[in-house]
Nucleic acid binder design. Structure first.
Lengths: 210, 210
DNA sequence: GTCTATACTTCGATAGAC
DNA sequence: GTCTATCGAAGTATAGAC
């Protein structure tokens, strides 16, 4: 199950191959519809109408294939976030963060779980998360600077808190737990509106100036 | 991979078997140390010194074994939470929720990911989450009632928000992402102290009375 | 540069012997 | 209650055909 080392003599297909792109696309669809465990060389080869060995020709291991799937998906997600934040300027960047966090898919959740046990995947997910948060923080920072607001809470904290709640609600909903969700959304809505008005999610309104 | 239906003629070992308990214990250890995917009939049989078919004799499928592992673990976790909340009375139930949420293990995360794709596991995790939250909500409710405080936010919301942040920080830390975590913990610390004093985590201090 | 034949190992699962 | 025997399917790896 665990490949210790890549065989040095092993031939691999080129990066810009049409078949390779087809495999990544088919794998991404499988991951989305049926989960990571549905990605096997046999199922994948079936989808593209080739023999199963072709998967190992292009990716070596299934893990390498999954990493290719992650990379192809990450690019799209980061673009989508950046675009949404740009188009939402200068109104409600925090709402964009909340809404995109709420559409978190089972896919990211699955990859995150894999990341904890498998180092190569961990590296990829770590990079993804850090970049995603960087984009969020920058957008909030910019929003505040444009209005000359000195936030009581660093933008990165606001992003983490809102994102945490969005992810939790999304995952719980997927599992069938919805108790208290409506009430949480109501509170978050108040924070979003407060942030749009005064640049503060009111999460630390009780904080006293030193 | 997916068993459609349990064979009706299949023999299964009794519930109160010593070997069965041994298997569950060994499986729990494997899940904790190496993850769900490390739980195979061979590895498990090896641990208890028996043949691999013994696993199927007692559990039918690996999934049934995982469910047994979940049930055995859930009981312990609920007890631990309830005991911590009782011993923390009447001071800081919210801090207990925060601290227990921060010790969330990769195990719960892995099972939650499995739960999204596999119905029998989903049922178990759903029940676990609902009961866990119920215990949290009751403790906060009791804390407020004893002090005659009418909270601006329903206890279940406070529990969800604090738990969300705790889980997110725990998972991100496991993946290697720690940007902003210290600042988030500082804010949460303020909330915990505010809640201990006035029964409000100050998360909605900006809320105006209607 | 692309793809396939073949083989090895591990896995989950079942039937039936002891 | 535990074992032997057996099955199909999965991941991986090597050699070689085109």
């Amino acid at each position: 199950m665990m490949r210790t080392k890549a065989a040095p003599t092993r031939r691999l297909g080129v990066e810009n191959s049409e078949t390779r792109a087809l495999l990544v696309k088919a794998a991404a669809r499988l991951v989305r519809d049926e989960g990571c465990s549905a990605v096997t060389a046999r199922r994948l080869a079936e989808e593209v109408g080739l023999k199963r060995q072709i998967v190992h020709y292009y990716f070596g291991t299934i893990e390498d294939l999954l990493i290719a799937v992650i990379r192809s998906g990450v690019a799209r997600i980061h673009e989508r976030l950046q675009r949404a934040l740009d188009s939402a300027e200068p109104d409600e960047p925090l709402r964009v963060i909340w809404e995109m966090g709420s559409t978190v898919t089972a896919t990211l959740f699955e990859f995150s779980a894999l990341a904890i046990r498998r180092e190569p995947i961990r590296i990829e997910i770590k990079r993804y998360m850090e970049q995603y948060r960087e984009i969020q923080s920058r957008a909030l920072q910019r929003h505040l600077q444009l209005r000359g607001i000195e936030p009581a809470v660093p933008p990165v904290v606001t992003a983490i808190v809102i994102d945490s709640i969005a992810h939790t609600l999304a995952v719980e909903r997927a599992i069938g737990v919805t108790e208290g969700h409506a009430k949480v959304r109501a509170i978050v809505e108040e924070w979003l509106q407060a942030f749009a008005k005064v640049g503060d999610a009111s999460m630390v309104a009780a904080r006293q100036p030193q």
